[in-house]
Computed example of a mutant assay.
Amino acid sequence: MAESAGPSANARARKGIPVLARECAMDLPRLPSFTVQMDPETIVSMITLWRDAVDLRMPIARDLQPHFLERRKHMLYNFEMQAKAWRQLLQGCSAEGGHVAGLDQLRRHVDDFWEWAEEGLIELARVAIELAESTRDPQFLTDPLLEAHIRKLRNGPAAEQTP
């Protein structure tokens, strides 16, 4: 990833959200900033365990493996939502001193997690489209968890929404 000389897009966005809210005449309470100790290893460990479990890359009892396969779509959707929530939270965070690189690294881990979940859902949407076309049965296109991804695949990048 190329480094830029100016503030990152996340840094610009953090400053822009309160400004945008005030410009929209929103009456937001002004809260004081506060310091939070964060253990990024906890989040990175959760991401690693979740990904490895869903991708069946870790030892899982044989009787649980079908559960992970059957529930893959739901788990990926929940992970996508979790990653979006973490992204929103981390967007409003700043780090002091030598911890800026650590916060940026955590943001990259969360972004990678979101992309992994998104790509998994897009692949399932691709399968749904193929099944709908091969069977001429539109029921495969009505899944609410895949609806947005099916729309993206059918309409191209213009249909994408910023997470």
Rank of each mutant, 00 (worst) to 15 (best):
G120A: 06
R57D: 09
H149F: 15
Q91I: 07
E96V: 04
D111T: 15
V100W: 03
R12I: 12
P66M: 00
F113N: 00
R87E: 13
L89V: 14
N78L: 12
G16A: 14
A132W: 05
N78K: 13
K152C: 08
D39I: 10
A83I: 01
Q82F: 14
T48E: 05
M46C: 12
F79N: 11
S94A: 09
I47Q: 02
M58R: 06
I47V: 06
N10I: 15
G98E: 15
S134V: 04
T48Q: 04
A158N: 08
P163A: 15
E133P: 00
F113I: 00
P40C: 05
D39A: 11
W116P: 01
F79G: 07
E96G: 06
P32M: 01
E3T: 09
P66Y: 00
D143G: 06
D55R: 11
R72P: 00
F79L: 13
L56H: 00
E147S: 11
L141H: 02
F113A: 03
L103R: 02
R151N: 09
G120V: 03
A132K: 05
Q91N: 12
D52H: 15
I60H: 01
F68D: 01
M46P: 01
D137S: 08
L89K: 14
H67S: 07
P138V: 08
T162G: 08
D63I: 09
L153A: 00
K84N: 13
R126G: 15
T48G: 05
E115T: 12
E115L: 12
W50M: 13
A13P: 06
A2G: 12
T35L: 09
E80A: 09
Q161E: 11
N10K: 12
L131F: 08
L121Q: 01
P18F: 04
I17N: 06
V100C: 05
L121N: 02
E130K: 14
N78H: 12
K152G: 06
D111Q: 13
I150W: 02
T142Q: 15
I47T: 02
L20I: 07
G6I: 01
E41T: 11
A53H: 03
C24S: 14
L124G: 00
E123P: 03
L90H: 06
E160H: 07
E41V: 09
R107D: 07
E130H: 11
W86A: 10
G6P: 01
G156L: 04
V54K: 01
T142V: 11
